[in-house]
Design a protein around this nucleic acid. Sequence first.
DNA 1: CTCAGTGTTCAGTG
DNA 2: TCACTGAACACTGA
Length: 267
Amino acid sequence: MPELPEVECWGRRVAERAVAGRSVVSAWAKADERIVIDGVSPRKLTTALTGRRVDACHRRGKQMWWTLDRGPHPLWHFGMTGSFAHYREPTERPAFAKVELELDDGSFFAFADPRRFGRVKLRDDPPNQPPLSELGPDAYLDLPPWAWFIQQLARRRTPIKALLLNQSFLAGVGNWIADEVCYQAKIAPQRPAAELNDAEVRALRRTLKRVVGKACDWEADYTRFPRTWLFHRRWGKNTDALTARGEEIDFDVVGGRTTAWVPKVQR
DNA sequence: CTCAGTGTTCAGTG
DNA sequence: TCACTGAACACTGA
């Protein structure tokens, strides 16, 4: 479930440890894959990467990009099921590998995706071109002050959950984080954003900071998330689902996504 | 066999 | 022009 913490921990940090400061000896990309779009053929991608040194690995929201010693620079998006892998032997290549790099220390780095929502793009100036330039502030690195939230929410009629999912508003929040934050902040997800009062907006902002911050501190290791988090109970749409405190969980569609929420707690 | 799903994009509506 | 909604995308696993 790649939302901001998963992309940060299983994506950017993994890539930084594996490839930052290293050079790409050879590159392979699966032919005829939609993973490589925007006019970037597998050939163009491998050409752009071969022989390059990776200077840094970045992330904003759920988008990642690498700065190479020479452009264009690759952008990576996990979609629903993408992942990175770093390994010593070609035999350890993950199933569904779409791109594989051989590095100058003899190791291998792969981008894999069992489905086809993951994407790799090439950009000359990533931060100043779409999709990065269209993103709102990063929910982890650049979480705006509560005054900004109050100002922004005041002119939005959309359900607060739908707004949290809007990447041009705030980058990185996905379905489970949106539900978790609404639950912990005690706000019903379908409430129009503009109807939240100042205290609720502040609670929302504070909760967002805590949930995203803790998830990243814990390396997006779900087993370390507190028992009381809705996260552990929200999967599977079980109509008998209860929170750790014994509260009934309802499932509705808000912002076009399945939404787990607790009517007894969220107003 | 059917169906829901972690995300994004795009056409269409008001 | 803008805010917003809902379908489509592709595939796996329950």
